[in-house]
């Protein structure tokens, strides 16, 4: 113990240890700055509700076709006209979609504008074009398609 206390050799090792630790502190600070910078800038592209809007659109297109089939099916055993049944079914669909989107904090609005047919006879299976107003808003992004023209005869 006595000899260890008196042994004053190895000053350079101690000094170089100090220097290396200072260098490490400096490097850590620089690395820290580089990591923090540029961290928060590319958020907006992720926030943009591209998929929500695309889904809203494609669901509406799909369901417009399904509703047409259902309408013709119901019409064969009912006295109501085709546009009347279509309106009712579409109203159901849009209420459900609006509820689903409201759960995510998004406002979606689907309104049936008109049921059209190129040869003018709306009351049969001739209906081929549905006009729908689609509106979407999530606080940052507003989307509206007025009207979205959906072809339903495949």
């Amino acid at each position: 113990m006595e000899s260890m206390k008196d042994n004053t050799n190895g000053q350079w090792i101690i000094l170089s240890g100090l220097v290396i630790s200072l260098i490490l502190i400096g490097l850590a600070t620089l690395a820290n700055q580089a990591v923090i910078a540029g961290y928060h800038s590319s958020n907006a592209a992720l926030e943009f509700p591209k998929e929500s809007i695309r889904e809203l659109n494609s669901h509406t297109r799909d369901n417009a076709r399904i509703i047409k089939d259902l309408t013709l099916h119901i019409n064969s055993t009912s006295n109501d006209t085709v546009p009347f049944i279509y309106e009712g079914l579409f109203k159901n669909y849009s209420e459900q979609i609006e509820g689903l989107y409201a759960l995510h904090g998004e406002t979606a609005d689907l309104t049936l504008v008109s049921v059209n047919s190129t040869n003018g006879t709306v009351n049969t299976s001739d209906i081929d074009m549905i006009f729908v107003n689609i509106t979407y808003f999530d606080g940052n992004t507003y989307y509206s398609s007025r009207p979205e023209i959906i072809e339903v005869n495949e």
């Binding site: 926030e47 689609i134 992004t141 507003y142 398609s145 979205e148 023209i149």
Partner: peptide, 13 residues
């Protein structure tokens, strides 16, 4: 997702 008839407005930060 551009609509044929309509508009899009988006805010970004």
């Amino acid at each position: 997702i551009l609509p044929d008839n309509g508009k899009i407005e988006t805010e970004y930060r």
